[in-house]
Amino acid sequence: MTPTPQAASSNHPQPAGEHSLTALRQMILIRRFEEKCAELYNAGKIHGFVHLYIGEEAIAVGVIAQLQPEDAIVATYREHGHALVRGVPATAVMAEMYGKQEGCSRGRGGSMHLFDAATRFYGGNAIVGGGLPLAVGLALADKMAGRARVTACFFGEGAVAEGEFHECLNLSALWKLPVLFCCENNLYAMGTALRRSESETDLCLKASSYEMPAWPVDGMDVEACQDAARRALTAVRGGGGPLFLEFRTYRFRAHSMFDPQLYREKQEVEEWKKRDPILTFGARLREAGLLDDNVLKSIEDDVAAEIDRSVEFAEAGTWEPVEELTRFVYSERTRP
């Protein structure tokens, strides 16, 4: 079994207040960043498919802040929030949205394919379910090399219908690999409701059939997400094999920028918005005396400034020369 260093470097104990305000700020950053992306999309600055995470911010913030720098993340095409929380600079993410070569994937990937080697952020995978095998492999490499790392793999509930989901849960449990499966169940696979696509809609039941712990988590509550992630990571790092978290959440915006949302009632959306993770957490912080209008304003101002900088950075960015079109089809580095 691999050695398990006790929470090494990044989890410096913080005052509860500061820690909470950091989480609030991260959620606000994702929210405002994506609102800006929608605006820039409509202004013709960003193209292609853009999938907004608005409403689901508590999950990325809750989970990723609990990871160590040496852990890995595999995410989906709805990954702006995950990249930002992981520490991919907003400037590099925004430049990627623009398709500029200063972007975190050199502009090659766009919204759906954010990659960042420095933070071990392995995409940005836009084939539903396609990221799970990568996570299994990253965890396999860690286990074989005796490294006590975890790979956090995010995917939507739509992936549960893919064969790769079942293959990967089985394989990782069979080999006791350190994968934290984070299913973001926002109830709709694009426009197909879970109840219309799954004979068994209890996702934890499915996961636990592969002999791994599976816990449902309130994905609208950042503290619940933090708590579940912390406990889950301790278990996974302890060498017990993978663990499955089902975050019950909701996407407030359309699936992508081309979605008239014919498949769900406006009333349903409004009901879920009452559970907005930023508003509810903000209210809790106010009750605890940790947040007031001034503090909130300073967070909002700080976030606005960061986003402004990211837009300026992206605007000032440059296009990769067409001569470099075929670079990186194959590696340029010398052989190891």
Binding site: P133, G137, L138, E167, L171
Partner: peptide, 28 residues
């Protein structure tokens, strides 16, 4: 069995796991 690794009949998972393991520093 660590280095000669029998897999389930899950081609997508074990080929993808090979990709992930390669990105993780192995030579599968």
């Amino acid at each position: 069995p660590e280095r000669i690794r029998d897999t389930p009949l899950s081609e997508s998972a074990f080929v993808g796991a090979g990709i992930g393991a390669a990105m993780g520093g192995m030579r599968p």
